[in-house]
Design a protein around this nucleic acid. Structure first.
Lengths: 353, 353
DNA sequence: CTGTTAGCGCCTTCAC
DNA sequence: GTGAAGGCGCTAACAG
């Protein structure tokens, strides 16, 4: 037996007794007038042969792929949800989305994925904007492929017309102000150096949030990556001396959770002595003990804006709702950065009643 | 200006002053002897023109894509790590992996992804085996594409030669036995109906783990999906009456964490009154209070076996280590199911000292 | 060593 | 309505 190769359009044509052009017309539901009889014959032949169109041939011929690519720092948490939402949105616009993880921001892996996507001639690309990827991305994408960045800072205008960012700085200001207005005698930011851009944004917000209080209130930046979680807590306690309670704003919920564990191990009460605010509003933030005050990530909104803008860049239409949303955000944009607010979810790690 | 289209192999050829065949040979580092001079000229032309091969054309011509597809129930946690590891492994075998999420096991989304992968003529497919996907998968894949399933139960041999499963049943037996040998007076399994196959496996293991003790010890199956977390806990307490401590084995760490929160809210001490064992060994299992006893998912091993088997099915060679590993597992296989052990990580939710 | 020439599977005018 | 033919970008013999 010879290997049963996939049926081609030619097979379908001869099976149905028509020409390949006709088959193509039927398959693509073109508006050219065809007899219902012809259509039926073709459709039957398709089923009978188990025909499945070869998109490589289609794309090659059409000179467009109808495919989009997404590069994430990793799957998991917020990013995983982001990917699923975005896929769904693009699907509604008639595009297919392939998702890739840089596997913990490994530049090599990331470059490999982008290169492959480009070789596959994707019609557009969306990428996170963290870490070093900037330079390589610039190189790779060149003048050709439409690209939109999300959660990226410091990207020159030449590369992207728009960056869709969560407003970490604002959230951080909000966190600090919350601490200050809820009796905290000293405030800290605990981050991880590897956070890069996103980390910087938080720090900036943290400092500006202090405002003029910066001169009078005890505060410090803690690097949990360098000091370790225990080290960071110790440092905070050392700096704050007898002052209580203190407030610690963390890079994310995971770090907040670890700090809670550390406090618990030392018999330090949360929130009576140490108040904590995290970021990401992960599933466990709600169930931890105490539950963690955090910021909700507006995935729906962000993916909507990202998708709408990419479509526009590609000259495609989008649903009216997204279009209006995008316009209203673009109107109040500063520079080429579009900022999205996050909502604080207050829980037990910052108050008790 | 006309749009600067991507340079093609023809452009490179004329730029370098050679024929397209030569360019192709250089690009693909074929073993045909060529003068270093020619090679240099071609390579220079490539960079000068920013040439990037069109994989659609390449694949069409080669009649193979060198691409593989992976279908996941969702990104996040274990599955996200699985995807990253698998990608890396396939890469080392010279294949590219595209990952798709069924977005919470939505059958429509799943079908769409598989169909698209097939239309792209991937050389092979690996898919989780949960939920209803079975039937549609069978339809779709037909006789053609090599397929390996992981974490799937009840798949007929006609579809898959092999299913690579984590041994949830065994882990569950182990959990029960741990409870029994550590003083638990009553034991429970708390799952979620939606767990499907994976849920069934746990239940089976839970029951067989009881063995002959099933007749003498108080036990029950709890459906946290139906009863809610609070309801499940109440039910366990009701059934066990005055007996303490009781042991609750949960579908995953997330559920265990929620139960801990629920216990805490009611002033029930963990592990003194209620012992808990979770599954997945998620990041937060270590940092929660108390930390959660759980089972580590052997992603490295599982991806290795999956990759090796798919490669073999496709007639490709794999590294010796993986080959030997696969052979040893195949040797002790029952049916067409290959089982992987998980390791229990004991933490504070089951003991205190 | 290098160039020529068929395809790969499908789309897309342009006649009939 | 339907069919014939050229082309998309690249590979793979096969000559030279």
């Amino acid at each position: 037996m010879k290997k049963n190769k996939q049926a081609t359009i030619v097979d379908v044509a001869s099976e149905a007794g028509v020409s390949i052009a006709t088959v193509s017309n039927v398959i693509n539901r073109r508006k050219v007038p065809m007899s219902p009889e012809t259509i039926r014959k073709v459709e039957e032949a398709v089923v009978r042969l188990g025909y499945r169109r070869n998109v490589m041939a289609t794309n090659l011929s059409r000179r467009r792929s109808n495919e989009l690519g997404l590069i994430l720092p990793h799957f998991g948490g917020y990013y995983g949800r982001f990917a699923e939402k975005l896929e769904q949105r693009f699907h509604s616009y008639g595009y297919h989305l392939s998702v890739f993880s840089a596997a913990g921001m490994d530049p090599e892996v990331e470059t490999r994925h982008i290169e492959h996507l480009l070789q596959r001639r994707v019609d557009g690309l969306v990428s996170h904007g963290l870490a070093i990827s900037m330079h390589s991305t610039q190189q790779l994408v060149g003048e050709g492929t439409p690209l939109v960045i999300f959660n990226g800072w410091g990207w020159p205008n030449e590369i992207t017309k728009l960056t869709v960012n969560l407003d970490f700085a604002k959230a951080s200001r909000q966190a600090v102000k919350y601490f200050l207005s809820h009796g905290c005698q000293a405030v800290f930011y605990a981050g991880r150096r590897k956070g890069m851009g996103a980390n910087e944004q938080r720090i900036e917000g943290f400092l500006t949030g202090l405002g003029e209080r910066a001169e009078t209130i005890v505060h410090a930046l803690l690097d949990a990556g360098e000091l370790g979680v225990a080290g960071a807590l110790e440092e905070a306690l050392r700096v704050s001396g007898e002052l209580r309670p203190i407030g610690i704003y963390t890079f994310n919920d995971a770090l907040a959770l670890e700090l809670i564990a550390e406090c618990h191990a030392r018999g330090i009460r949360v929130p009576e002595e140490v108040q904590l605010i995290g970021m990401d509003n992960e599933h466990f933030a709600k169930a931890s003990i105490p539950s963690i005050t955090s910021f909700e990530m507006p995935v729906e909104l962000q993916t909507r804006l990202v998708a709408a803008f990419l479509m526009r860049q590609m000259g495609e239409d989008v649903d009216e709702e997204s279009a209006m949303l995008l316009d209203s955000y673009l109107a109040q944009m500063k520079g080429h950065e579009l900022l999205i607010d996050m909502e604080m979810v207050v829980r037990k790690s910052t108050h008790n009643e």
